[in-house]
Design a protein around this nucleic acid. Structure first.
Length: 511
RNA sequence: GUCCCGUUCGUCUAGCCUGGCCUAGGACUCUAGAUUUUCAUUCUAGCAACAGGGGUUCAAAUCCCCUACGGGAUACCA
């Protein structure tokens, strides 16, 4: 039997971290076992299900790279994949259950059920449906119907039987079925409840393994018994711990985003989010935290999912996000960051100055964790107007009284030097020959202009001639060129800015 | 209340099933240092844990029991 797993979200809200992780584990297990992964939409709660939520969930899964073999938009042989479209199927099963006596009609109103529950609790018993219509006679039934009451369908739970569930994650768990209700299979309006639809669909869709949050452990027992009543084999279940917030409580808005797509919009790389949430409860190996989806699939086993609840930690996520940015090849990075970069980089520059953009971005690649940090950092290289200086930069410029003289002299020197042209002039040759950030280990030859290393040599000589300490010279130059005191190597900056811009910016603060 | 599940550095985890290789490993964070024109990266070193108590055993993080603390369920939600 080929393994088939599913993720069955209900479209009543966005895809949150916990849901994403559940989807991811089911997906990884299916891929690891060479089986199929399907998506089923549990929209039996008509009032709360929305198409907007559905779209957000699908988009979130796609963004993470969790693809489904069958489900909405892809179709498949076991559809429809929306429970709201499978109502006749549930009706058929309901009838069968009624015929075999596993189900019975309950005419109690919600108020009566609640009242019964309270009474049991008052008696010190377990609060649940009081089974008032479990064994009524035909006459009583007729009477209730004559009152115009609508019936829901309840499951006749075996009384006083201990059942075992061999959970893939928790091992064997035992529960006395008395603890469980005569739960509702069908609402009076003919809509199935979760546990009922879930069993019917898991069977009809050939599901073999189910990984889901441990809030479903008790549902697992209900479903197990129903499978038995239907004479069907149940899938293997794995109930895994929830993701917790920093305080060990349920994950809240304070701990993490509630919609996985917020990470996309903040410029997190999906590989990083995938890796991080996969790691929340599953270890790749004893000494490796970073892994790709492919690597995960190679060794993922459901039984290895941790049994303790994991707390969400954004510091580690931030580190991981940065690591993924650093490891992304520069051409890809520019493509993927383009929507953000365009906030400060003119969009035509992506055609005319691709090499320059790649050089600038690669200088900041190791300085950002998420893509949305890039536009601000990179802006100095593309501003044609007056550069704004931050407070620290202004301070640096005022610190040395004779700085203006040096800046002017250095501007004069650069004006005569063989620097690359400034944006928006054509400088493709220079950017193609010199790939930044510059690395002393890899000297550049055949550059059509000075390289950052040569610019540095020249600058050091300049400092020597004028009797200025190199360290002192560097700070005002950096401030006037980039408008900030931090960032890429100074001579990379000079190279990126090119002759005209460097000269202009230096003279602005020169004597 | 009742029923279920869980508990290894602050956090994520490896080890637990199949006791000895555990003086408990890795990662994030933090601290110190190295590199350096800043920031960042990188590298080196350091801090830091088997929830507590009883057993079983020559030997327990690993097996058993109890306690504590967390979490989940207890819906005509999923």
């Amino acid at each position: 039997m080929t393994p088939r797993l599913r993720f069955a979200p209900s479209p009543t809200g966005p895809l949150h971290l916990g849901g994403a992780r559940t989807a991811l584990y089911n997906w990884a297990a299916a891929r690891a076992m060479g089986g199929q992964f399907l998506l089923r939409i549990e929209d039996t709660d008509r009032a709360r299900s929305t198409d907007e939520s559905l779209q957000i969930i699908l988009e979130g899964l796609r963004w993470l790279g969790v693809d489904w073999d069958e489900g909405p938009e892809t179709g498949g042989d076991h559809g429809p994949y929306f429970q709201s479209q499978r109502l006749d199927l549930y009706a058929k099963y309901a009838e069968k259950l009624l015929d075999t006596g596993w189900a019975y009609k309950c005419y109690a109103t919600p108020e009566e059920v609640a009242e019964g529950r309270e009474r049991l609790q008052a008696e010190g018993k377990r609060p649940m449906y009081d089974r008032r219509h479990r064994d009524i006679t035909d006459e009583q039934r007729a009477e209730l119907e004559a009152e115009g009451r609508k019936a829901s369908l309840r499951f006749r739970m075996p009384l006083d039987e201990v059942r075992q569930l061999d959970d893939l994650s928790k091992g064997v768990v035992e529960v006395n079925l008395q603890e469980l209700d005569d739960w509702v299979l069908m609402r009076p309006d003919g809509m199935p409840t979760y546990n009922f639809a879930c069993v019917v669909d898991d069977h009809e869709m050939g599901i073999t393994h189910v990984v889901r949050g441990e809030e479903h452990l008790m549902n697992g027992f209900k479903q197990l018994v129903l499978f038995g009543a239907l004479g069907l084999e149940a899938p293997r279940y794995a109930h895994i711990p929830l993701i917790l917030g920093k305080n060990g409580k349920k994950l809240s808005k304070r701990d993490a985003v509630t919609n996985i797509l917020d990470y996309r919009d903040q410029g997190y790389l999906p590989e990083a989010i995938f890796n991080y949430i996969a790691m929340l409860g599953w270890g790749f190996s004893g000494d490796q935290d970073l892994f790709t989806a492919e690597e995960m699939v190679e060794r993922f086993q459901i039984k290895d999912i941790g049994s303790g609840g994991a707390k969400f930690d954004d510091e580690k996520l931030a580190w991981m996000a940065g690591d993924y940015v650093r490891r992304t090849p520069i051409a890809d990075l520019v493509d993927r960051a383009r929507p953000w970069l365009e906030q400060t980089v003119p969009s035509e520059a992506f055609d005319t100055h691709r090499g320059l953009i790649e050089n600038v971005v690669s200088c900041y690649q190791e300085r950002v964790k998420i893509l949305s940090e890039l536009p601000e950092k990179v802006a100095f290289a593309f501003t044609t107007g007056t550069l704004e200086l931050d407070a620290d930069a202004q301070k640096k410029l005022k610190k040395q009284e004779d700085a203006p003289q040096w800046l002017s002299a250095y501007a004069d020197l650069l004006e005569k030097s063989d620097l690359p042209p400034s944006y928006p002039h054509d400088r493709a040759a220079a950017d193609a020959a010199v790939r930044l950030p510059s690395d002393p280990e890899k000297p550049v030859s055949d550059a059509p202009c000075m390289t950052p290393a040569e610019i540095e040599q020249q600058c050091r000589a300049f400092a020597g001639e004028h009797g200025i300490k190199f360290g002192q010279l560097v700070h005002p130059i950096r401030a006037s060129l980039s408008g900030t005191t931090k960032g890429a190597g100074l001579f990379d900056l000079v190279f990126l800015l090119g002759r005209e811009t460097c000269v202009a910016r230096l003279r602005r603060f020169g004597a």
